[in-house]
Simulated scan of single mutants.
Amino acid sequence: MSRVKLNLPGFTEFRRDAGTRRVVEQAAAQVAARANSMASTTIKAGKPVYSVATPINSAVGSIALVSTHDNTAARVDNAAHNTLLKAVGGA
């Protein structure tokens, strides 16, 4: 059996590449779209809108966040129904 040695700094740079960041952002946009389609409008809070933050570099690559930022209705909807977890496919 042969041994494989990974170039971890090179792998991290690959995960921070502009093309990789686009793919990460597209995946986050898909999650946000699923969350928005599953969201439940409430009388008091209104229509929930889940948003995507621009991908940023992290210690191990790139990350993009889907959040309830500045949208009370999305916070209420997510707290009541776990919408973001369901949109990712976790429940």
Rank of each mutant, 00 (worst) to 15 (best):
Q30N: 14
R16D: 07
V24F: 07
F14I: 13
V49D: 11
I63K: 10
T42Y: 11
E13A: 15
A35D: 06
V60M: 12
R22G: 12
E25P: 05
G19C: 04
A91W: 02
T68D: 10
Q30K: 14
A53K: 11
A18P: 09
G46E: 01
A79H: 11
A80H: 09
A39G: 12
P9L: 05
S51D: 11
R3L: 12
T83G: 11
M1V: 11
V24C: 09
T72H: 07
K86M: 07
G19Q: 12
G90F: 13
E25K: 12
G19H: 09
N7Y: 13
L8F: 15
Q30M: 04
L65I: 13
N7Q: 12
Q26F: 10
F11I: 15
N78L: 11
N82I: 08
I56T: 14
A45G: 03
A91K: 10
R34K: 15
T12L: 07
A73D: 05
V60A: 11
P55I: 04
G19P: 03
F14Q: 13
Q30W: 02
V66G: 09
R15N: 13
R75I: 10
L65G: 08
A79K: 14
G90N: 06
V66F: 00
N82R: 15
A27D: 08
I56K: 10
N71L: 05
G89F: 00
T83P: 07
V23E: 15
H69D: 12
D17A: 12
K86H: 08
Y50H: 08
G61I: 06
S51K: 02
T41Q: 14
A33W: 02
G90L: 15
G46P: 09
A74R: 00
T41S: 14
L6Y: 13
N7I: 09
A29F: 03
A45Y: 12
V23Y: 06
S58K: 07
T68Q: 05
L6V: 13
R3I: 11
K5W: 00
A73E: 05
V24S: 03
T41F: 02
E13S: 14
S51W: 00
K47G: 00
A39C: 03
F14R: 12
L65D: 09
R75C: 08
S2C: 02
N36P: 06
A53F: 01
S62K: 04
V88P: 03
N71Y: 02
L85H: 05
P9W: 02
A45S: 14
A18K: 14
A29N: 15
I63Y: 03
V31Q: 10
G46C: 09
V60G: 06
L85P: 00
R3G: 05
P48H: 04
V49Q: 09
S58P: 00
A74M: 07
V52Y: 05
D17K: 00
R3N: 13
T20A: 12
T72M: 05
Y50G: 09
F14D: 09
A28T: 06
K47P: 00
E13Y: 01
S37C: 02
T83F: 03
N57I: 00
T12P: 00
T42W: 04
A64I: 06
A87R: 01
I63Q: 08
G10I: 04
D17C: 06
V88W: 01
V76F: 02
K86V: 06
A29T: 15
I63P: 01
A91Q: 13
D70G: 11
S58H: 02
V52F: 02
